[in-house]
């Protein structure tokens, strides 16, 4: 049968930063071809096709929370595969190889993670799941 693609509306202007991305304008309608968990979605808009940040899109119909997993306050263990320095107040700075707990996997690719007493957003593309169960203390 025909493949029905999900439609989303662009909520803010976005200028592409590579040839694999497309530029979007507020109010544009796009169809989603693929959703990467790292927060980049492959979409088509008119005749253009390319990657765009999921956070610049909202679903045309239906509640947006429906496809997002609930937070898991117990945390899931992941290891950082790349260092990242916080650029905003609500982000965490972490070095490569640090073990952290993922609390909330947000569709925009900026997951909420916990390291000791600190909690903040971190790029999911720099995280690798350890597969270990968290030790209960």
């Amino acid at each position: 049968g025909p493949i029905i693609l999900e439609s989303y509306r662009v909520i803010a202007d976005y200028s592409h930063t590579s040839k694999y991305e497309i530029t979007l304008h507020i109010g544009d309608l796009v169809e989603i071809v693929e959703k990467s968990p790292n927060g980049w979605w492959f979409c088509q808009c008119d005749t253009k096709r390319g990657w765009v940040p999921a956070s610049y899109l909202e679903p045309l119909d239906g509640p947006e929370e429906s496809e997002e997993a609930d937070p898991n306050y117990a945390g899931e263990l992941y290891i950082t595969t790349k260092a990242y320095k916080a650029a905003q107040d609500d982000e965490l700075t972490l070095e490569t190889g640090e073990t952290i707990e993922v609390i909330h996997k947000l569709l925009d690719g900026w997951w909420v993670v916990r390291k000791g007493e600190e909690t903040g957003h971190f790029p999911s593309m720099f995280l690798y799941r350890t597969g270990e169960k968290k030790e209960m203390v």
Binding site: F42, S55, Y56, G109, W110, P123
Partner: peptide, 22 residues
């Protein structure tokens, strides 16, 4: 075929979206 997604983190949500979440 689809190219792999960009290897840099996507931009954070625009201000409007963050207000909605808050």
């Amino acid at each position: 075929s689809i190219k792999l997604p960009p290897q840099n983190p996507p931009p954070r949500p625009p201000a409007e979206m963050r207000r909605k979440r808050a």
